Computed example of a mutant assay.
Amino acid sequence: MRTRPDRALAARLTLAAALVVGLASGCGPGDAPAAAPPGPAPSTTAPTSVTPTPTSTTPRSQEEALAGRPTTPAGAATTAPADIGFVDTELYELPGGERIARSPSAGPSRLDNNLATGFARTPLGAVVAGINIAGRADGSLGEPIYRPTIERQVIGDGQADLLRRVHRDGRPDVPATGEQTDGTGVGSHGFTLHSYTDDEATISYLLVATRGSQHKYAVYRLTVRWVDGDWKLLAPPNGDFGAVISTPTSIDGFQPFERRGIPA
């Protein structure tokens, strides 16, 4: 796998680009274990609890995640509510080609001025809010998208650092219709809800890069808080998404967004 400069790690989809390199070379992070089966198909009835997150480790940086060198054990998952409404989701495409989740009932209810806002104050609303805000806080989508997203929908001490990192490495313009910034299929395919209250939730979601029949995996762990009538994303430590990325040792336990399940 090629070595990428540290500054390129600031943009979220640099991870996807590095996953693509792994697909092309036949090496890289997030290879599902040979015995790992596909994720379960969503049920039309809610389960009694959400399956705990797969065993994973938190890398010191995105570079370690991409190189498959995990270091610190991730925190244990907690029991999550049962009424999340698993099947009420669909995937839509961001400029640049990444496919992320939304829900007719849980949001975003508004997609205007390059912002995705209006999320339900529910467990599913928290899940799709975290994924949409993190997805749009990516430099590869262009400054007209990442800047208002970070300025208006990211909170916490790392917010200013995140904006500086993304602006340093991001592009000034929005990708044209049909342009794929990563050169392969990248999408958010599943999630785990670790904890939820009406004021704060913690989630993990599974990012999958696909080329042909090959798949590479990475997991983002995010916290959202209810502020001023909507969910906001808590900035990662020091504004670095690398601090909240891990390489899963299994894809079991992630609830898929679509009926076809998680690629295996």
Rank of each mutant, 00 (worst) to 15 (best):
R2T: 13
D6Y: 07
A8S: 14
A8P: 07
L13Q: 14
T14W: 13
L19G: 13
L19A: 14
V20R: 13
V20Q: 06
V20S: 04
L23K: 01
A24V: 10
C27R: 12
P29W: 02
G30Q: 07
G30M: 10
A32G: 11
A34S: 13
A35Y: 12
A36D: 15
A36T: 15
G39E: 08
A41I: 05
A41S: 14
V50T: 10
T53G: 08
T55C: 04
S61W: 11
E63N: 11
P73K: 00
P73T: 04
G75Y: 03
A76T: 15
A76N: 04
A77L: 03
T79P: 00
P81V: 03
P81I: 05
P81G: 08
D83Y: 04
I84M: 07
G85A: 10
F86M: 08
D88M: 05
L91Y: 04
Y92K: 01
E93P: 04
G97A: 11
S103C: 04
P104D: 09
R110A: 11
L111H: 02
L111F: 05
L111D: 14
D112G: 05
N113C: 10
L115R: 15
T117W: 02
G118Q: 11
G118F: 13
R121Y: 09
T122H: 10
P123I: 07
A126V: 09
V127R: 01
V128Q: 03
I133Y: 13
A134R: 11
G135K: 00
R136I: 06
S140P: 01
L141I: 06
I145E: 10
Y146N: 07
P148E: 06
R152W: 00
V154F: 13
I155M: 07
G158N: 13
Q159E: 13
A160Q: 15
L163M: 14
R164S: 15
V166C: 11
H167V: 12
R168V: 03
G170N: 08
V174G: 03
V174E: 00
P175D: 09
Q180L: 08
Q180P: 06
T181L: 09
G183T: 09
T184K: 00
G185N: 11
V186Y: 07
G187P: 00
S188W: 09
G190Q: 02
L193R: 07
L193W: 10
S195D: 14
T197Q: 05
A201S: 14
I203P: 05
I203M: 11
S204R: 08
V208P: 01
A209W: 07
R211T: 08
R211F: 07
R211I: 02
G212N: 03
H215F: 13
K216T: 09
V219S: 04
Y220P: 02
R221T: 15
L222Q: 12
L222Y: 02
V224A: 02
W226K: 06
V227C: 00
D228T: 10
D230K: 06
W231S: 03
K232C: 14
K232W: 07
L233K: 11
L233M: 08
A235F: 14
A235Y: 12
P236S: 03
N238K: 11
D240T: 10
G242K: 12
V244I: 15
T249G: 04
T249R: 13
Q255A: 14
P256R: 02
F257R: 01
R259V: 11
R260K: 14
G261Y: 05
